[in-house]
Design a protein around this nucleic acid. Structure first.
Lengths: 151, 151
DNA sequence: TGACAATACTTAATATGACAAGTATTATCG
DNA sequence: CGATAATACTTGTCATATTAAGTATTGTCA
């Protein structure tokens, strides 16, 4: 075997590791978003919950968790805090009393509304950084890694 | 303006949001890695620290934090726990006593060694899922979002 | 040289991530 | 109809993320 390859498995460099680069990329893009949310004293997670509710309307807890990328135990606590802060309201489903429905309040919707423009500008920044085509392709590639496609 | 666009800023769908998709992609790829690490009772973060030290050799705390994508306060405790578990050793820099140098121990290096092959297989899985070219391009696109390129 | 700023962590406090176990409610099957 | 399983959270525990404040050490400049 004249061109035999080195058979020893070698770890890829941490500068070229997919899990690590996903973290780094997120670190790179989050600062302007955090800056935006800090003005209203809401966390990233609360913002995701608000966006999901604004997009889909009232939903049961499990659906919100899945769409907002939160584990149920986390969402349980986040929702309780958001209720205490007047951002959402919680109600038991009358048919299936195990279920809980989460709805956005006017105060919560207001936060979504006043940040829409700023959020749109941030997205424009992403497109400018990557180029519009690269941006779309990045989203397409990331979609291929989502959990749903791997089960 | 016959073709005037709707000027109202609208939030992109949560199914097409870059920050959210980065989280989801990570959720999609981490299970096999967690499974691998669970056998040795080390966390993702500890694994990243071990890999950085195995790749670069002894480093000061700040450098490890940056390369392992950890904030300093997190690394402080993680390093202490890893020291207690015999995975790394800590020592004060003799010239600048504010600095602390972290080194991997033989036990730590052993964990890296025995997992190299499994880790390589996991990476192969990524390439298989995306295709080799897409995989490389994804890494290139993610690199464009890293914090270093935006300051 | 001595006050002050800067550096490199470290500690503290609160929130979230991850996994395991628990509770209440509903569905199912004999 | 009643025991059991399944569902939909909820609670608990530990580790980590994030921000702010604190400490020890070093650098800088009048």
């Amino acid at each position: 075997m004249p061109t035999a390859k080195n058979n020893k498995a070698k770890l890829v460099s941490t500068t070229r590791s997919l899990p690590i680069m996903l973290i780094r990329a997120r670190e790179g893009i989050m600062p302007p978003i955090r800056e935006m949310l800090a003005e209203y004293d809401i966390t990233e997670q609360q913002w995701r919950v608000l966006r999901v509710l604004a997009e889909y309307g009232p939903l049961d807890t499990s659906s919100v968790a899945q769409r907002a990328c939160l584990l149920l135990p986390s969402l349980t606590r986040i929702a309780q805090k958001m209720r205490d802060n007047g951002l959402v309201s919680l109600s038991r489903d009358k048919v299936d009393r195990r279920r809980q429905t989460i709805s956005i309040t006017r105060a919560g919707q207001h936060i979504v509304d006043v940040n829409q423009e700023k959020a749109a500008d941030i997205v424009k920044g992403f497109k400018k950084t990557l180029g519009k085509e690269n941006y779309e392709q990045l989203l397409d590639l990331l979609a291929l890694l989502e959990p749903e496609f791997k089960d």
